[in-house]
Design a protein around this nucleic acid. Sequence first.
DNA 1: TGCCATTGTTTCCGAAATGGAAAAGCTCAA
DNA 2: TTGAGCTTTTCCATTTCGGAAACAATGGCA
Lengths: 298, 298
Amino acid sequence: MTNLGDLEIFARVVSTGSMSAAGRTLGFSPAVISKRIKRLEDRLGTRLLQRTTRQISLTEAGQGFYDRVLGILTGIEEAEAYASGRSSQAQGVLRISAPTSFGRMHIAPHLTGFMKDHLDLKLHIVLTDDFTDIVADGFDMAVRIGELTDSSLVARKLAPVRRLLCASPDYIARNGAPTEIGDLARHFCLPAHNNDNWKLEGPEGSLVWHPEGPLVTNSSEIVRAAVIAGAGIALRSTWDIGPELRSGQLVQVLPQWEGSKNLTLSAVYPSRQFLPAKVRLFIDYLATLYGPVPYWEQ
Amino acid sequence: MTNLGDLEIFARVVSTGSMSAAGRTLGFSPAVISKRIKRLEDRLGTRLLQRTTRQISLTEAGQGFYDRVLGILTGIEEAEAYASGRSSQAQGVLRISAPTSFGRMHIAPHLTGFMKDHLDLKLHIVLTDDFTDIVADGFDMAVRIGELTDSSLVARKLAPVRRLLCASPDYIARNGAPTEIGDLARHFCLPAHNNDNWKLEGPEGSLVWHPEGPLVTNSSEIVRAAVIAGAGIALRSTWDIGPELRSGQLVQVLPQWEGSKNLTLSAVYPSRQFLPAKVRLFIDYLATLYGPVPYWEQ
DNA sequence: TGCCATTGTTTCCGAAATGGAAAAGCTCAA
DNA sequence: TTGAGCTTTTCCATTTCGGAAACAATGGCA
C-alpha cells in the first residue's frame, strides 16, 4: 500500500504549488519530492500533477485524490491525538475561515478567552467574504452566515440572524420616519454588497424590496458607517448594529418588518466520522458564547 | 508522522487477535509485527494492546484508535481506487453483514447478477441476526431491518417492511378465522425471536398483543415452517411469506391489522466524506432491485 | 533577442530503515 | 511436568531513502 509520506508530500506540493517549495517547508531536497511524486503516480497508474518546470497544476484525478488525501491526513492527525491520551484536549493548529465583519466584531474579541484554556493549540484565522472551499483550502472549519445548503459539509447552527431596518435619529429628524413599507421609496436606502434586494417579512407577509440610494459599495463596513452617519436607511443584522441600537446611535424603523428569517449563523466543517477535538471544542465555545440568545440581541 | 504500514499491521493484529496470525496473513515474520507495534506505541506514547504471550486485548486507547484506523484505511483504499481511474468501478473486497433469513431469501439469489457486472470485486457476506458493530468488525456495510437509530452510521432506506398476520388454510379450516383482534386469545400464536410482543396497527389505532402459543424459538425460520405447516397464526413480513401468500399456502387473517409501520429495510454504512464505489454501487443495485415497490409485495 | 534565475528530473553514493532467523522468556493446556 | 505456541530481543543482510551534483527546460527581464 501507498506510503503515507508520499501522501503528505503530495498534499504539500499541491498546497504550496511547487515541488521545490514543498521540499523547503518539509525539509527535503527537491530530488526527493520529485522521486516520491513519481513513485506515487506510478503506483496509482495515473498522472496527478501536470507540470512544466515553472508551474504545476492538478489533473482531474489529482484534484479528486487531493480532496481525499486531505481528509485522510486530518483523520490520522485526529487518531493520533486521540491515542496520545489528549483525546479531549485541543492541540495542533485550528484553521478557521470566517466573514470579515462578523469575525472582527464577534470572533476576534473572544479568541484569547479560548486560547487561554487550550495552550497547546494554535489558531489560524482567515477573514474573507468569499465562500471558500474549506476542504480544498485546508480549513478545519468555517463560520458562515447564510442559508444552509452545501451538501458535503456539516453545519451546526450557532445563532439565528435577525436583520432590521434602521437609521440614525439625526436622519429621522431630518427626513421623518417611514410608517409603512411603501414609504421607503421616498427615503435614501443603503444596500450593501450582495444585498441589493431586501427580503422582508412583515404583517402582510413577505416581499422583496429593491433599495435605491446614493451609495453603492461592496463593503458592508462602509454601509454601516454610512447609516450611523445618517446617510439613510439600511437593513442590518443585529450582531452588526446591536450596540448602536442600545446606545441610541441608531433606531429601528418600520419595526413590523424584519429581514427574512432563513438566515442563520453557523459553523460548518467537513463531514467526518471523528471530529477533531479542537474543532468540536471551538464550536462548542462559540455556541455557548452566542446561545441560546446572542448577547448582541439583549 | 506515523508510518502507514504500522497502521495496517495494527489493524490486522486486532482483527486476527494475535501478532503471529497477523504476520502470517500479511507475510511478515512475528518479529516484524512485534517491533512495529512497539514503535507505534512508542510514537503515540500509549499502550494500544494489552498482551500476554497467549492473548491480546485492546486497551481503551487502542479501541478508539482502532475504530479510527479502520476508517483511515478504507479512506486510503477509496482514494487510491479513485485515482486509479476506476472511480466509478467497484473493486477490492466488499464486506457485507445481513440478517440471516432476509439475506438467504433476497440477497443471495441476486448476488451473481451483481457480480457479473463487477468482475474486479469480491464479496464477503456474513449472515447473522446480531446487530454487529459494522465498523469495529470491518464491514463496509450492512443490511438491516428495524427502526433507524444508530447515530454514527448513515442509513439508506431500501424498502418498507410490511408485516401481516397469517395462517395456513388448513389451520383456518380446523380452527376458524379470527374476525376481531380479541379472537387471537383463542388461537395458537407463533411468536418469533425478539418478537414476543406484536405491535399492531388497525382501524382502532395501535395496540401491543402478547402472543402465546405452544412453540417458542429464537429461529424465525422455524416459525416460518410452523405457520406453513398449520401450527397457528404468525406475524410475518411480506418479504418472508410473499410467495406463500400468492400460492395460497398461507392466507392473511385479520387483514385490517398490520404490524407497526416504523420498520424499514435499509442499508447502513459508516458516515464518510467519500463513499467507496463498491458500496455505493451495491446499495444502488439493491435499491433498484427492491424499489419502488418490492417484488415480494406484487 | 539573449541571459539568467528557478524549477523539475536523473544519477550515484552513503546512511538509515526494514525484514528475517535464531534464541530466549513466557503462558496455557494436556 | 512437558510441550506447543506466543511475544520479544539481538544480530545481520538487504532494501530503501535522502542528498549532492549535473542536466534540461521554462519564463521573466534587460
